[in-house]
Amino acid sequence: MTHTPATASKTDPNILISFDGVSKWFDNFQALRDINLLVKQGERVVVCGPSGSGKSTMIRCVNQLETHQRGVIHVCGREVYGNMKELEKVRREVGMVFQSFNLFPHMSILENVTLAPVRNIKLSRGEANEIALHYLERVQIADQADKFPSQLSGGQQQRVAIARALAMKPRVMLFDEPTSALDPEMINEVLDVMTELADEGMTMMVVTHEMGFAREVADRVVFMDEGRVEENCSKDEFFTGGRGERAQIFLSKILQH
């Protein structure tokens, strides 16, 4: 047998995410076409591409918010598919940040962050609060801990969402267009937190249109189009011309102004 990414991820603990021949359909529409991809420990991978190219679908397959229909996905050494118990374990090692924040509106900021540690690893209230405040401190929003999500700005909410994901001490962070729903003046406060996280060595997979962020932070850029991974190369290669035609067109469109 050849050395496929899937078998590699089982043997190599440095590979946190592996896609091996993954395809997905929404009814008759094929959203992902034979995706092969590896994300190593400590890597920062930025995923970009035109809308409808399958980037969100792909990143959501990692923690199975979308299920794939063909191929194998391994995350942190476990195959993700079907088995709920296994899946819960994977999800606890994978933090996710959404485009629309998705904070729990009926809970205070502190409760939003402590919920998962309290429920999943049965931490006491006190311990969980301590951890939560630590991460809220890191995203510089600890002073708002007692407020409710609706009282915060979009940028603040997204930072809380990052703290919520970090509170489970994940090994990988997934970001699904984290700045797309933000007013322009709030984008940077979120990107700053993400950059900091990257500097600390967090493994990250980021779907974004922020090419500035990709330039600064990414190790690797994955370019997708029509459900395929068209480019999967180092940041330098991608931005200095070693890219294909489709990526060229995409970049020229979003970098115009």
Binding site: F104, H106, L115
Partner: peptide
């Protein structure tokens, strides 16, 4: 209850029962 609430609750690794008890039912009941 919007899909995003289910997804966020699942993404932090809550069990199906906890998703309902902590996130969906409290909001739905209000």
């Amino acid at each position: 209850i919007t899909k995003g609430q289910w997804e966020a609750a699942r993404a932090v690794g809550l069990s199906p029962l906890n998703v309902l008890r902590d996130i969906i039912f409290p909001q739905a009941i209000r």
